[in-house]
Design a protein around this nucleic acid. Structure first.
Lengths: 226, 226
DNA sequence: GACATGCTTCGATCGTACTCGAACTATTCA
DNA sequence: TGAATAGTTCGAGTACGATCGAAGCATGTC
C-alpha cells in the first residue's frame, strides 16, 4: 500500500494553522501576494515566505511573479475541492466550536468557492442547470448538452473559449454547507463572472461571502426558477 | 472567516504518517482492531492507542467495543471521500515518488473504497448505471430511477432496506486514479457485497485490490456492457 | 483464583518544524 | 544614484508532539 505517507505529506501541508489560513484565503479564487497572505495567516512575512515555499513545493499553490510582487493561487480546483471536503468534515466532526459569527448565514447562502458560486445559491444553480436540461450526468462526470451550449451562448458567455480551454467546462463540487453538489469548472466560473462583471453581485471584502443586488437576485431567479 | 484553524485540525490529524497509514487501511472498509492498526502503521500499540484517541476525538473514526477488542472504522463515507481526494492530490502533485510497485495496476483497475468498488471498474459501473437509466443526476445529487429500482430488485438486492436506511442510496465519489466519478452510497456497497457474497470477487489480503473470478468478470460485463 | 491478552495511561526522551530578528537580493520610484 | 518596498535566506530559540518503556485496567481463558 504505502499510499499513507503520500497523503500525510499533503495533509501535513494543510495541517498547519498558518498554511490552512492561507489556503482558505486562496479559496476565494483571487490571486494574493505573499504579504497579503502573511497578514491573513497572522504571521510575519519571513514565516509566510517559508510556508509559501512549502505549499508551492507540495504543488498545492502556484506562484506568478509580477514586478516586485509574487501572486499566489491554488494550483487547481481539485485542491479547492479537497479543502471544501475538509471544511465539511470540520463542520460535522468538530460541531460545536464553529457555529460562529453573523457572517455564517451569509456564507451558507452564497459564497465564492475558488472561482465559482457555492452555498445554497450555488447548489440551486446546479439543480436548475440539470432540470432545465443544460447539463447532463453522462459517463464523463458532467456533460454540457447542446441545449445548454445554445442557452449560455445566447446568455452572453463565450462558450467556444470555454470548450477550447484545458479546464473541464462542467465539474461537480461538493458543497460543505449544503452537502450537495454545486457547479464548478469553466462554466461555473463564467457564470459568476457574468454576474460580478455586471455588478449584479460582489464579494464582501475580506470574506468569501457573495452579495446580490436586487437586480442580481432577479437575474438569478430568472436563471434558477426553482 | 477563521475557518482556517478548523480545517487545520482535521488536516493535522491526517498529516501524521502513522495516522495516515491507519486511515488508509480503514479505507478498505473493514473494521480493524487497535493492534492491527498499530501494525499497519508500524508503531507500538501504546503509540497507536494515542493516535486512535486523537482520530476518535476528531471524529474521523469511531470505535466499537467487542469483548476485549476495540474495532475501529471510518466515521462515514465523507471521510473516505476526503481521503480519496488527498490521494488524488498526492498523485498529481508529488508525481514521481509514487508510480510504484506491481500492485499499482491492480489498484487502478479495481479496488475497494470504504465499502464500494472503485478504480476503472468502479467508474465503469457508474457509467453503466447512468447509461442504462438506473441512476439520474437530479437536483439532489444522484437519484435512483424507478427503472433502476426495479432492475436491482430483480437483481436480488434488498432495495427497500436500502431506501429505508439513513444513508443515501446513491452518492458520487471522485476516483483518485481515474479522476472520474464512481458509485458510492448504499447501492454501491450493496452491489459489491452482492459480488463478494457469491465469490465472484474478493479482496487480495492486506491490500485494497479487488480480484474477480472469470464468472465474476462475466457478471460484471453483463452489468456494464460498455 | 491465576495467567494471558488487548488496550490505555503515565513519564521521559528526542526531533522536528514553526517562529521571528537580522541581514541580504530584487524591483520600483524619485 | 539613492531610498523605499517586496520578498527570501539564515540562524537561534522554542514548543509541541511523536515515540516507547513501564505500569495499570479490563476482559477472557484455564
Amino acid at each position: 500500500m504505502s499510499v499513507g505517507p503520500n497523503i500525510a505529506i499533503i495533509a501535513g501541508l494543510v495541517g498547519d494553522p498558518a498554511r490552512a489560513g492561507m489556503l482558505s484565503a486562496l479559496m476565494a479564487g483571487r490571486a494574493l501576494t505573499a504579504s497579503e497572505l502573511a497578514q491573513v495567516a497572522g504571521v510575519t512575512v519571513q514565516t509566510a515566505s517559508s510556508h509559501l515555499s512549502k505549499l508551492s513545493d507540495g504543488g498545492l499553490i502556484v506562484a506568478r511573479k509580477q514586478g516586485r510582487h509574487r501572486y499566489f493561487t491554488l494550483s487547481g480546483d481539485d485542491v479547492a475541492q479537497v479543502l471544501e471536503g475538509l471544511m465539511g468534515l470540520a463542520e460535522r466532526t468538530l460541531a460545536k466550536p464553529v457555529r460562529t459569527g453573523p457572517k455564517d448565514p451569509g456564507l451558507r447562502k452564497a459564497r465564492i468557492c475558488y472561482d465559482h458560486l457555492a452555498g445554497e445559491m450555488g447548489v440551486g444553480l446546479f439543480s436548475a442547470c440539470v432540470e432545465r436540461g443544460f447539463i447532463k450526468d453522462g459517463a464523463e462526470d458532467l456533460e454540457l448538452t447542446k441545449k445548454g451550449r445554445d442557452f449560455f451562448t445566447d446568455y452572453g458567455l463565450d462558450m467556444a473559449a470555454l470548450q477550447n480551454a484545458r479546464r473541464p467546462v462542467c465539474r461537480p463540487c461538493l458543497d460543505w454547507s449544503a452537502r450537495r453538489t454545486h457547479l464548478a469548472g469553466g462554466l461555473g466560473a463564467a457564470i459568476l463572472t457574468h454576474f460580478t462583471d455586471r455588478k449584479w453581485a460582489w464579494r464582501v471584502p475580506d470574506t468569501r461571502v457573495i452579495e446580490f443586488s436586487p437586480k442580481g437576485l432577479k437575474e438569478y431567479r430568472a436563471l434558477c426558477p426553482a
